[in-house]
Amino acid sequence: MKMPQFDYACPSSLEEAIQLLSDNEGAKVLSGGQSLLPLLAFRMAQPTLLVDIQKLAGMDRIEISADGLRVGARVRWCQIEDDKRLATAHPLFQFMINHVAHYQIRNRGTVGGSLAHADPSAEMPGVARVCDCDIVAVGNAGERVIKAADFFVAALETSLQEDEIITEVRFPPWPSGRRWAFHEFARRRGDFAIAGVAVFFDIGSDGVIADAHVGVIGAGDTPIRLDAVEQLLNGQRLDEELIGRARHLASETVDPQSDIHAAGDYRKSLVGTLTARGLRDAASSGAVK
């Protein structure tokens, strides 16, 4: 478990970093290192060059405005955890990030790193997908805004170009009174999710669901959205009958793989269970969760 040889650079500007990436085939960006360094130790990744972005200016703040959140790529999990503004500005985001790994890892891991790593069980890709985030990346061709729906291609695979660096992720605004919940199931606290379901929706003055979002991690090649369940929910009143149908539909919609921790059929059932629990939880959450 000793890393293979690689070159290391720690540029001080974004332009320089991009140049290093485009000049060196097989170069990788090093951010918090919480996924990349174990991959190197296992020799599952053998990059020629690591471009450490820790000296780049900016990219390390959470900005909140009427347009939503702008979260710098180098923002660490612990910043999200500690940011008191997020309790109202984006409680779902903050709550999901609390499920990321362990305290020590949350002190190092970054938003951009997790998005670029694109583990389908990870919370950050999941929250980006369910919240319809825009992911901003900069490369030789300039800045590109990529919709989360287009960003995640497969397990550990994104639509980023070799020379692109994620600089920011943008969240649409979070209206007050929005109902939400996140349920994750893992073997141990802090493990990658066997499955996780995030739901949020608004309740109109007519008492029916509007703008339902249902996102799932751990049950596909990428973080996924359950469009069919969202359609089922929109315009309906949330009751046990609807929850039961949503549960069944959620379970039927996903087609997860088996691994040593859980078989595919178990995961399917789990997605239904967590969807139902999420909806119940969200319904009772009201505006003050």
Binding site: F42, R187, R188, R189, G190, D191, F192, I260, H261
Partner: peptide, 28 residues
């Protein structure tokens, strides 16, 4: 509850890291 060395039929071990071989943590 947690710890399990899983091998496939060819004798490959599928729980070859502490991410897959689950040891209880201090808080569990």
């Amino acid at each position: 509850l947690l710890e399990h060395f899983v091998y496939d039929e060819d004798g490959q071990m599928l729980s070859g890291s502490l991410a897959d071989y689950l040891v209880p943590l201090a808080t569990d």
